[in-house]
Design a protein around this nucleic acid. Structure first.
Lengths: 114, 114
DNA sequence: TATAATATATAGATTATCTATATATGTCAA
DNA sequence: TTGACATATATAGATAATCTATATATTATA
């Protein structure tokens, strides 16, 4: 099922930081990984991702370096910083509070965990 | 905890429809109800709500009528339509898919239920 | 050799919020 | 009684996070 795009707003940064918390990646790879891990629910657009990566680097959440792949193609890898991990932690807490609040209104049991 | 405002994007319509699926309400009341049901996490602004209500009415998801309260104050009540309930159902499914996808990326078990 | 996939990038449009402001009535305390 | 605050609705304009469209260049495949 396709996800309403507007729902994605605000969580993209968290998802990117989470990917990079596991391993360094280049932009195109992040798009593929998000697609796979979400069962095709997320199709982050290049036009969204690259400007966002630049912004996160400016905010000292990421650093970048270039690396040449086996096929001689140059890729720009991103690495999460200490500050990035701190932001990730905060954003995960916000995410939990947010989903708990929405689910609370929806009437079901809250899915939030401590 | 205050919710990152950008996270709210896209779910406001669903929350309003859900409130009205339970009982008819007027705008100011919706703001109060959302605040209470979310444990102060959501503080929907009047400047967001009223234009949204007008839009939902134009899209035949809601109808409205005026009613005079005990204190002689006139309130504009909203009622959900059949189409509104249909939209609510769809939006709830999207919400489940979305949270399942995010939680999937975050690495925990998916909270999505069928 | 053309087409699709890989890879990064920017400009401009869209859209859902927000803040600020306006108007008007009801309630309560000084 | 009057000033402040809560109730109640409304609109204009600002902000921010997406999107689409476009550009460029290389690699893989048919």
């Amino acid at each position: 099922m396709a996800i309403d795009k507007s729902l994605l707003t605000g969580s993209t940064t968290m998802l990117i930081l989470k990917l990079l918390d596991e391993t360094n990646m280049y932009g195109y790879q992040m798009i593929e990984e998000l697609r796979k891990k979400s069962n095709n629910a997320f199709e982050l657009k290049a036009g969204t991702l690259y400007p966002l990566l630049h912004t996160l680097e400016q905010k000292n959440m990421l650093t970048s370096y270039e690396e040449t792949a086996d096929n001689a193609r140059v890729r720009k890898y991103y690495s999460i910083t200490k500050n990035g991990r701190k932001q990730l932690k905060e954003k995960k807490e916000e995410w939990k509070a947010y989903t708990a609040a929405v689910n609370g209104v929806l009437g079901g049991a809250s899915f939030a965990t401590a």
